[in-house]
Simulated scan of single mutants.
Amino acid sequence: MKFFYQDWHFDSELPMKIFSQNDISFHAHCHPEVELIYVESGSLIIGVNEEKRRVSQGNLVVCGSNDIHYFENDGSDSKVIVLIFKPELLGGLRIWPDEFQFTSPYVTSNIETEHVSKLMYSILQENNKKSLNGFAMITKGLLLQLCGMLQRYIPSLPQDKEPLEQRARMQKILSYIEENCCTEITLESIARHFNMDPHHFSRTFKSTLGINFKTYLNTVRISLAEIKLESTEASITDIALECGFSSIRTFNRVYKSLRGRTPSKLRKS
């Protein structure tokens, strides 16, 4: 995903990021980096590939390389620790997991997550000691231990190639939507682009992402519009048209339905 994930600014010596965030919400996306989400408090809905669950305090979600995942905030308070890192930190791997897959990305057992949460907190604390000698080595050691614990205690099975192929196609679809979201895209045109029957495309898209194609397209457009609203002085009308909406009226209606407020309030906040 380009305008959301190109600017992580990973350190060349230690390509990872860890941060704590309240009430996270983000539309479906994927990237080669591994992403671990630990719920510190409250609850939220997280979708990973074809699964979608409410996760609560003490739960962990493991998003492996190129897993399609998203966060939904339905008004519940939540606080999560998010750890994102390049698989190469685990010994030159291109993806992780590589030769196996976890039976589920959702880890809810207190026994399993107790050790993992301690390591997540340790990495988060170490992240504040970047100026100290040995920071990168200690952090990498904690990360290796964390992934080793996940591989040891979370049930897994051999990698199934068929879901990977299906996921790869969906990744291409998501990239296509992002690259062309400002142009006119219809269900029929994108299905034709990927040589799929429109009805099959619609069913596959919704079963994977939890929302229909039109809602997802509007979500991407709104997310891009919000970036422009906060970072440019362009008028709301110009931004609406630049982001693929046919009129300011349509933009206002869609924005309010997805965000619960008008775009003008974002610019005033």
Rank of each mutant, 00 (worst) to 15 (best):
F3I: 07
D11F: 01
E13T: 06
K17F: 00
I18C: 04
I18D: 00
H27Y: 11
C30Y: 10
C30L: 08
H31N: 08
P32S: 09
I37A: 06
G42T: 09
Q57C: 12
G58C: 04
G58P: 03
L60R: 00
C63A: 12
G64S: 05
S65M: 05
D67K: 02
Y70K: 02
E72W: 04
E72A: 07
D74N: 11
G75L: 02
D77S: 10
S78M: 04
V80C: 08
V80S: 06
V82S: 12
P87T: 07
E88C: 10
L89V: 03
G91H: 09
G92V: 05
I95C: 07
P97H: 02
P97F: 00
D98M: 02
S104M: 03
P105C: 02
V107I: 04
V107P: 02
E114H: 06
H115S: 07
S117F: 09
L119I: 10
L124M: 09
N127C: 00
K130E: 01
S131D: 10
S131P: 00
N133E: 05
F135D: 01
A136W: 05
I138A: 04
K140S: 03
L142N: 09
L143P: 01
Q145K: 14
Q145H: 10
Q145I: 02
M149Y: 08
Y153L: 10
P155E: 04
S156Q: 12
L157F: 00
D160Q: 13
K161S: 14
P163H: 03
L174K: 04
E178C: 11
E179R: 14
E179N: 15
C182D: 15
R192V: 13
R203P: 03
T204Q: 14
F205D: 09
F205S: 10
F205K: 03
L209C: 04
T215H: 11
N218M: 12
I222D: 06
L224P: 00
L224E: 10
L229F: 13
S235W: 14
A240D: 04
E242V: 12
G244Y: 13
F245K: 13
S246F: 08
I248T: 12
I248N: 14
R249M: 11
T250K: 15
T250E: 15
N252R: 15
R253C: 05
L258R: 09
R261Y: 01
T262F: 09
S264K: 14
S269N: 14
